[in-house]
């Protein structure tokens, strides 16, 4: 494997959890709900997936537990913002704080346990293509799943009737409600989907990426996922692009250090964050303000009587 291939491979794996979590949040936001609790759902996914994987010695059960934990956290959020029409920003932040604390309690007995790595899945023939072969056809299952998920979310939102319903509810819940569309039900499932994705991303971190549990191990990745949704202007394809760009910025700054440029490491560490700001800025300049943002995003829905 050449250095170039190796770096690309690392970038893809570093980007995958961001991609998965951001896709889930994208669906939630497209339905008009802003859930800032991605970090909390993700870290709960990590803790629960690892606990289940170690307890039952099964990666599959671990993944299921991670998704379930994320979805349960999301259900709590849904109860608040849909059931009680509570402030979405506040509820999302509360979810993050709760998740960070609760995951620490759940994970505590599993500190120090370890899991074996998951073998990469080699797709025959295709993986022999130079450069892209190794990159795209010899990855762990999560990487394939994340790409399939991107396509599915894109198809669902743009090509299905149900996706159209979800988008129109996100665009204007008052008129959607007037048309008889089930605002609450659609939003509930969209929030749950977002939570399950965040949980899956957490499971990836705990079971594949680091392969052990440590408190607060998501280290701000949930927030990056939120940024990616805005960066992508709420379009799934662009979430994929954005995730890979951010992953590349994170990984390449480390390579820049190893290549001995002599730039302070703090400057290089700041690059991914500055790049995100610049990307958001360029995007806004090109497309005008608030492009693609669902019209009802973050507004509590209380039907007129």
């Amino acid at each position: 494997m050449t250095t170039f291939e190796a770096i690309l491979l690392t970038i893809v794996t570093a980007s995958t959890p961001l991609l998965i979590a951001a896709l889930g949040e994208l669906v939630t936001e497209r339905s008009g709900v802003l859930n800032l609790g991605v970090e909390g759902m993700m870290v709960m996914g990590a803790a629960c997936s690892f606990a289940a994987a170690v307890t039952f010695d099964s990666t599959l059960l671990g993944v299921a537990a991670g998704m379930l934990a994320g979805a349960l956290m999301a259900a709590l959020f849904a109860l608040l913002v849909l059931g009680f029409a509570a402030n979405q920003t506040g509820s999302g932040l509360a979810l993050t704080i709760l998740g960070l604390g609760l995951s620490g309690l759940i994970g505590a007995p599993f500190v120090g346990a370890r899991r074996d790595p998951i073998a990469p899945v080699d797709i025959p023939v295709l993986s022999d293509i130079p450069i892209v072969g190794r990159l795209f056809f010899e990855q762990d299952l999560f990487v394939y799943a994340s790409i399939v998920l991107t396509v599915l979310v894109g198809l669902y939102l743009m090509r299905t009737r149900s996706g159209l319903t979800l988008r129109s509810i996100g665009e204007n819940h008052t008129s959607a409600n007037a048309l008889g569309l089930p605002v609450w039900r659609v939003r509930f499932w969209a929030i749950l989907f977002g939570g399950a994705c965040a949980g899956l991303a957490g499971a990836y971190l705990a079971l594949v990426y680091t392969r052990f549990w440590s408190p607060g191990m998501t280290a701000g990745r949930g927030w990056i996922a939120l940024a990616l949704v805005v960066f992508a202007a709420w379009r799934p394809g662009w979430v994929l692009v954005g995730a890979y760009i951010f992953g590349a910025a994170t990984v390449l700054q480390l390579h820049a250090q190893a290549a001995q440029f002599g730039v302070p490491s703090q400057v290089l560490s700041a690059v991914p964050y500055l790049a995100t700001i610049v990307a958001l800025l360029l995007l806004s300049i090109r497309h005008g303000r608030a492009i693609g943002a669902p019209g009802s995003l973050g507004v509590p829905f209380v039907p007129d009587r």
Partner: peptide, 26 residues
């Protein structure tokens, strides 16, 4: 010798990325 500073004492994913960057560089 090649050196990378992770700018953290404890962030498993970031430390892992730093290690992979070094391994990728031979």
């Amino acid at each position: 010798i090649k050196i990378v500073f992770a700018n953290t004492w404890y962030d498993p994913a970031k430390e892992g990325d730093a290690a992979k960057a070094l391994l990728d560089q031979g």
